[in-house]
């Protein structure tokens, strides 16, 4: 317990609700672990502040800065009063000696994020926009619990055109256009905050065929 307190004394940072922790585009030289409170990750897209993620205690952010001072790819804001641990190249060894479990957790997060990014890349690699949109649904499905009945091919996703557009790398307008045409073909149903795909296997076949012709 006392070693945890020591760790905090060395690395602790407090931020008030609303304060920026780091800004998109500034060079990154530290990464953070949330001790208490919530952090909002946003990007300014055109004239809109778009929320990318809301992070809770125990979660990391800014970890890309660990080994390279690349520009930040998003802005991090304290959503509530937060207490953070801040790590940089200078104090990282100290952390490693005192609390290797934290570093091991970072390793696990890296593993997961490499996978997520690869998956995203595969979506973006598809040339046809409708295939990308279908593949986003497949990706969302892969990250969901499977239904009890394997013959049940309908899937309900808590998602929005904005989210899908983000993953597919297309404009929201274009995304809405594709979704509307899918709805007109009765392949999906759009309602407030959720989208029902009637037959996920059909989407899988469609994406597979597009990916094969490409390769």
């Amino acid at each position: 317990m006392s070693s945890e307190l020591d760790t905090f004394k060395r690395f602790g940072v407090d931020k008030k609700a609303g304060e920026i922790i780091f800004c998109e585009y500034e060079p990154g030289d530290a990464f953070y672990l949330i001790q208490s409170g919530k952090v909002k990750i946003v990007k300014i897209v055109g004239d809109v502040e778009k929320t990318i993620d809301i992070l809770n205690p125990g979660e990391f952010f800014g970890e890309m800065a660990l080994l390279e001072q690349a520009p930040r790819t998003a802005t991090a804001l304290a959503l509530t009063d937060v207490r953070l641990m801040e790590f940089n190249q200078q104090n990282f060894d100290v952390l490693m000696q005192g609390n290797p479990q934290i570093v091991l957790n970072i390793l696990k997060i890296f593993s997961k994020r490499i996978y997520d990014q690869k998956r995203r890349f595969m979506i973006l690699k598809l040339e046809e926009i409708p295939a990308r949109v279908a593949d986003v649904f497949l990706m969302l499905d892969e990250n969901m619990a499977k239904p009890e009945d394997p013959d049940d091919l309908s899937r309900t996703f808590q998602t929005t055109p904005e989210d899908i557009a983000h993953w597919a790398g297309i404009s929201v307008t274009k995304c809405v256009e594709v979704l509307t045409s899918l709805q007109n073909q009765r392949r999906i149903e759009i309602s407030q905050g959720k989208i029902v795909v009637k037959n996920i296997a059909e989407f899988q076949r469609f994406v597979n065929s597009r990916r094969r012709t490409k390769a």
Binding site: M64, E68, I106, F110, F121, L124
Partner: peptide
């Protein structure tokens, strides 16, 4: 812990590469 450190470097390198690829496509 040297193993963790070594893997962290390898993984972070992979993460950065795939991140760049995604950004390039976007």
């Amino acid at each position: 812990t040297r193993i963790i450190m070594k893997m962290l470097k390898v993984f972070s390198n992979q993460l950065r590469r795939i991140h760049h690829k995604v950004e390039k496509l976007l």
